[in-house]
Design a protein around this nucleic acid. Structure first.
Lengths: 208, 208
DNA sequence: GTCTATATTCGGATAGAC
DNA sequence: GTCTATCCGAATATAGAC
């Protein structure tokens, strides 16, 4: 069978993708070692067996590298959440969702930093990368809806709660589970409050 | 009256302190403009009418500058909290405390970043500076105790909640008050949960 | 404490050949 | 896409005079 033109394209595309994956992996490794802001393109090139200028075939600038990492981190997040089974019990499902998120953050501090904290001076995700972040927010919205939560104020409180747990876990007990273990309690606290507010508001404005 | 030696020392000490205060103020201004990690000692020297090497009379290294800023930020935090009246009603006092903290963070994103997020690669506060941070945590502990909260787990949940509100405020509505307005609701949610847990645990283990 | 002068290193980015 | 060669700018930090 003769080699067609599309075969060629596929093969080259694969090689390129593989190289890009390697670049990303080593970029994360460097970020762990030196800090996210201190990644050097020279070090990165060394680790992937390229000369430093050759990296520019994969991104336009250093901020472009951060954009690739941002997209990669969001892919990891989506995959992480979707790789876990979804319990039938809405309460348990929400508890496990929160636990997954806190673990995800504590598993990789710099990834948490890039995805959820704005710490790199002039970096803003490109529309394509940001779409992945939105995809996650939509997924989270659906998970909350399954537990009967859809009020915007409720969603804001929930997001603060999860973010706070993740942040405390990352900042004060990196690699541990001190705040992971509080996830169930936090969710119960939250759901009880949602119920409580629903009841008191239905008392006031029920007949209408 | 003759000029004594201690007068001289005081005067020089004051001049030095004034200069240091100016350096700090301009360092914050630069952090706002360029990002915390991107402060340049050249720019800083320009702004305080010094040559760049002269800054080394005030700190040993760039990390030393961050340490000064860290201490300064914690001073601001303590002063901010203590400048507000403390309500007699423990619930209201706690609500206002949380509002103050969220406002403090949203008032200055980079200060929040330096104080509560570990974002500068090799920076760790010196013992002296860190003591100020501990002073704040002790103050927060006392405020919680006034509301009847002292269980370590409760404190952990509370810290996550406040940190989460502050972070969401800073990240998603900088300068606004979307999450500040949720402080009261969050505190009520939290206190209700503390009560609820206290009751259920006193049922189980009351006689002893 | 502040200066001038300078060392030194390192960074990202470009030009142009292959 | 990858290379060599190089540019240029920026950074922190030090030496030594005043």
């Amino acid at each position: 069978m003769a080699t067609t033109e599309t075969d060629q394209v596929d093969r080259r595309g694969r090689r390129r993708e593989a190289k890009q994956a390697r670049i990303l992996a080593e970029a994360w490794a460097l970020a762990h070692r030196d800090g996210l802001a201190a990644i050097s393109l020279r070090d990165l090139a060394d680790r992937v067996d390229l000369r430093q200028p050759s990296l520019y075939a994969y991104f336009d600038s250093k901020l472009g590298l951060y954009d690739l990492m941002f997209a990669d981190g969001n892919h990891q997040l989506l995959e992480w959440v979707m790789s876990h089974p979804l319990s039938d019990d809405p309460r348990i499902a929400l508890v496990e969702f929160v636990q997954e998120l806190v673990r995800f953050s504590s598993d990789d501090v710099v990834r948490h930093q890039l995805l959820f904290q704005r710490t790199i001076p002039r970096f803003e995700p490109s529309p394509t990368s940001f779409a992945l972040a939105l995809e996650f927010y939509e997924l989270a919205r659906q998970r909350l809806a399954l537990a009967g939560v859809s009020d915007p104020g409720d969603v804001d409180v929930f997001s603060a709660l999860v973010n706070g747990l993740a942040h405390q876990q990352v900042a004060n007990d990196p690699g541990g589970d001190r705040w992971v273990l509080l996830a169930e309690r936090a969710v119960d606290m939250f759901l009880a409050d949602v119920d409580r507010r629903r009841q008191s508001s239905s008392q006031k404005g029920a007949p209408q």
